[in-house]
């Protein structure tokens, strides 16, 4: 028996909007730790890892570990029927091939349940080791989204370089080239407007902008984004999901021969 009640149901709606462009089908895993997902895009270039910790749910019952295969477009269709203020409850019986999404309006005057068919998905699970990163940039998520969008109108790839001067996003294309430098800026009114750069050593990596733009679909989840870079590893672009977890996007770099 599985029963997860999320008072801030809009978080789940935003999570689905953030990942459905990158991944078509995925297994949602439920355990005592929480509700999680790990899935790669079809070309194995990008990976999304989601964790919503059990403590973040108002009610979390998961009698045994359960993996539920879902088509994310279909989940998104179901969740779009929930109001932004609705409480969302996920329910599944042991051995069932369906999951039920229950939507309750805040004043309990409307209760809806939507049952969705589950599917069998063979998914590869990657072991992602804890790693030390050469540079970690924390910046406003809207600013990062704007940079990715702007640069993709010029070129297909972005070079992200972190030095003690700041973080530089560069691209080049047929019509010209562009460089955007963001310097560390902690003298702001609100902490979420700060740009904070922690650098162990300079790093410069090239990534496909198409994927970066896809990651920025998570912008409504968090005012800030954290970009962790190391010359030996895929980049990690992380958005916090309130105080209950995160969405992490991993992207393999492009490398010159």
């Amino acid at each position: 028996m599985l029963e997860l009640r999320l008072v801030q149901g809009s978080l789940l709606k935003k999570v689905l909007e953030a990942i459905k462009e990158l991944v078509t089908d995925a297994n949602f895993d439920c355990s005592a730790t929480g509700f999680s997902l790990q899935a790669m895009d079809s070309s194995h270039v990008a990976l999304v890892a989601l964790l919503l910790r059990s403590e973040g749910f108002e009610h979390y019952r998961c009698d045994r570990n359960l993996s539920m295969g879902m088509n994310l477009n279909n989940v998104s269709k179901m969740l779009r029927c929930a109001g932004n203020d609705d409480i969302i409850t996920l329910k599944a019986d042991d051995g069932s091939d369906t999951v039920t999404f229950m939507f309750e309006s805040p004043n309990q005057d409307k209760i809806a349940d939507f049952e969705m068919k589950l599917m069998d998905i063979d998914s590869e699970h990657l072991g992602i080791p804890e790693a030390e990163y050469h540079a970690i940039v924390k910046m406003p998520s809207a600013e990062f989204a704007r940079i990715c969008k702007d640069l993709s109108s010029i070129g297909d790839t972005v070079v992200i370089s972190v030095t003690k001067e700041g973080v530089k996003f560069s691209t080049r294309g047929d019509i010209g080239n562009a460089n955007i430098v963001c310097r560390q800026n902690t003298t702001v009114d609100k902490p979420e407007e700060a740009t904070i750069i922690e650098m162990q050593e300079p790093v410069s990596l090239t990534f496909a902008l198409r994927y970066m733009n896809s990651f920025t679909k998570a912008t409504p989840l968090s005012n800030t984004v954290t970009i962790s870079l190391s010359s030996e590893l895929p980049v990690v672009v992380e958005y916090k999901v309130a105080d209950m977890g995160y969405i992490r996007f991993y992207l393999a770099p492009k490398i010159e021969d």
């Binding site: 790669m40 070309s43 194995h44 270039v45 990008a46 990976l47 590869e124 699970h125 990657l126 072991g127 992602i128 080791p129 790839t157 090239t206 496909a208 030996e232 590893l233 895929p234 991993y250 393999a252 770099p253 492009k254 490398i255 010159e256 021969d257």
Partner: peptide, 14 residues
């Protein structure tokens, strides 16, 4: 020439 790496070049299958 610039090549796109994949995640399996970095991470191992569990």
């Amino acid at each position: 020439e610039i090549f796109q790496q994949t995640l399996t070049d970095y991470f191992t299958n569990k």
